[in-house]
Simulated scan of single mutants.
Amino acid sequence: MTGLPPPARIPLLVLGLAALLTGVLAGLARLGIAVPDFGAAQAGIHAALMICAFFGTVITLERAVALEGLWGYLGPAAAGFGGLLLILDAPHWVAQSLFVGAALILLLGSFQVMQRQFALFTVTLALGAVCWLLGNLLWFVSADLQGAVPFWLGFLVLTIAGERLELTRFLPARAAAAPSFIAVTVLALAGMLFTPIEPERGLQIFGAGLLALAIWLLVFDIARHNARQQGLTRFIAVCLLSGYLWLALGGLAGLAGGFAAGDALHDTAMHAIALGFVFAMVFGHAPIIFPAVAKVNIPYHPFFYVPLALLHASLALRVAGGVADSLALRQWGGLANTATLAVFIATMLVSVIRGGRTPARRRRGSNRGPGLD
């Protein structure tokens, strides 16, 4: 059975983008910046909008396209409509139920992938889905959104790590790679699972696991080799390597207690990972993922480095504000983060228009090349 045709996937992307827009406005409201009422009203669920509604929709949609079955699209539909219900101020339990359902669909899809190919990277992807499911269940049962955040971060980090791990098979075999990956993943999972029992210690262990995972990615990922290439291949590698540095900073801040709500390093720990690491991955992989999902062409252009540079500069400003305990710097950093996302989206839209005008013979090879990821 084939999946949804590309035009039918667009409404799911629109739901995800609506969650992104509202989540960004909610994040600005948390910084004390005046935003439209519909964004300010969601300040308390900023993390749910960004992770469950936006990333949940995008990740489950990508997985559904890969599985090529109609049932897989129930995942992005559930996550997208869950975000819409949050925006419309529906009772939280309804949206929470949809997020639980979306995570279950993602987990079932992950099991199907494991049946096709049982490997360390497919197990890691499944563990990422488990983390999302556990976080959603925790939020549903206890209404403790803050307690769900480590599980949600685990969902994003393990999903990305699993996809990166898959590509290490193109490198010469290194005996230490798999055992060390298992060790750092177990450390992060142990901290996450220990958090509901002993929050302070569990969050510190979780931070240590993320720091160790960042070091593993910097050492073993194929991005180090691809940084010596040209064009899109090099751009993706730069995105990845810079993102790993932010993951390391976030893990280090978490190890110092930054994952605890109210800690002076909380904003640094959270956004080094959720913005610096995760969005660097988004910027790098968008020219590959969006064409696969929406069947559009996004030819590489050196301007792609502009939103990436803005991402790092704006986040550095925000982190500096957190370290200096300066609300003004954090606010300017938050506004610059928002502008960065706007520049990135505009860049992708212009690229799609450019891609539509590219002659077919050139288009076939525009985003291809050895060692693409």
Rank of each mutant, 00 (worst) to 15 (best):
Q146A: 14
L88N: 04
W246L: 07
A261N: 13
I345R: 01
R364C: 02
A126Q: 03
F279Y: 12
I197N: 06
A360T: 13
G262E: 08
L133N: 05
G82C: 11
D267F: 06
A175Y: 00
V58M: 14
G209N: 05
R318T: 01
Y244S: 01
M270F: 11
S180M: 13
F344S: 11
A223E: 06
A41C: 06
Y300H: 11
T347R: 01
L127V: 15
I353W: 13
A26K: 03
V306E: 05
L193T: 09
F54H: 02
G56H: 15
C131G: 00
S97H: 02
C131P: 08
M348S: 08
H225F: 12
M50A: 13
L335A: 11
A64Y: 12
G322S: 10
F118K: 15
F54T: 07
I215N: 12
T159Y: 00
G32Q: 02
L240S: 11
S180A: 09
V319H: 04
F151A: 03
V219S: 08
P307W: 08
F344E: 04
W152Q: 13
T268Y: 00
A248F: 06
L210V: 01
A48K: 10
S366P: 07
A286G: 08
G80T: 12
A64P: 12
G202L: 02
P307Q: 05
L108Y: 13
E68W: 13
V35F: 00
V186S: 13
R164P: 02
N226W: 06
G39N: 07
A274N: 10
S142D: 11
V238H: 07
L329W: 14
L13V: 15
I45R: 11
L218S: 03
A95V: 07
F277S: 00
A175C: 03
W246K: 09
C131L: 14
I205Y: 07
E62V: 10
L203F: 02
A79K: 07
L138C: 07
A78Q: 08
F277D: 03
H225K: 09
A316W: 14
A269C: 05
L21E: 10
P150I: 05
A177L: 12
V113E: 10
L335P: 06
P199M: 09
L28V: 06
L20F: 15
L255A: 09
G147M: 15
I222N: 03
R362I: 12
L171K: 15
L49F: 12
S110C: 08
M281C: 11
T60Y: 13
I353R: 15
L265V: 01
L21P: 10
A176K: 05
L317G: 04
N136F: 00
A336K: 04
P291N: 09
A77Y: 07
T233W: 00
